[in-house]
């Protein structure tokens, strides 16, 4: 691995900042250099919330990601805004529950996953972010899924440990869909 520069974007309340923190915690557990930076301005209200996550085997220079290697777009405005920025050969995870347009880019690994609908099937819309993170890990291998689960355990703490199985299920569903789509694309 060299450096993963990831942007996770969506509506406020979709857990995009938490998803980014999970990746950073997971990277830290894997002894990577990590940074997490939220767009904290007026953007966080109304429009899109987003954060930059850098995971690298060397010290992070810029914590602000301008040319992402991967983008997780949880809604249509996020696809519109960040799809053009992804580097050639990078990955784009699209939450098709809230973003219907097909990506025109042929130079990306595009993973389409109905994250919100899957979260609904699992009984809690708030785990849509974990479904998307699962798909991202399938496409990029940025960190190991076990590291994310470890980070999740830490983040939830003993008080919310009961939510762990649900989150694990969401992550695994995303991972499975991502892997299936990628395998299909290769055949």
């Amino acid at each position: 691995m060299a450096t993963h520069e990831i942007i996770i974007a969506g509506f406020g309340g979709q857990g995009v900042l938490t998803a980014g923190q999970l990746l950073a915690y997971a990277g830290l557990a894997e002894k990577k250099h990590v940074s997490w930076f939220p767009a904290y301005g007026p953007e966080q209200r109304g429009g899109t919330a987003n954060c930059s996550v850098v995971l690298s085997d060397r010290p992070v220079s810029s914590p602000v990601v301008s040319e992402p290697t991967a983008v997780v777009a949880m809604n249509q405005p996020s696809v519109d805004r960040f799809e053009p920025l992804v580097r050639a050969g990078g990955a784009l995870v699209v939450n098709t529950s809230l973003a219907r347009r097909k990506s025109p880019r042929q130079d990306l690994t595009v993973v389409e996953v109905p994250a919100t609908e899957i979260a609904g099937e699992l009984g809690n819309l708030r785990v849509a972010n974990l479904v998307a993170v699962g798909a991202l890990l399938a496409a990029t291998g940025a960190v190991r899924p076990e590291s994310v689960l470890e980070a999740l355990k830490k983040l939830l703490g003993p008080g919310k440990a009961a939510l762990l199985p649900l989150n694990r299920k969401a992550l695994e569903r995303g991972l499975a869909i991502g892997r299936r789509l990628l395998a299909a694309a290769e055949t």
């Binding site: 830290l28 997490w36 930076f37």
Partner: peptide
């Protein structure tokens, strides 16, 4: 600055 204050790092 705001970026340093808001960002997370180890």
């Amino acid at each position: 600055d705001g970026l340093l204050g808001q960002m997370m790092e180890p």
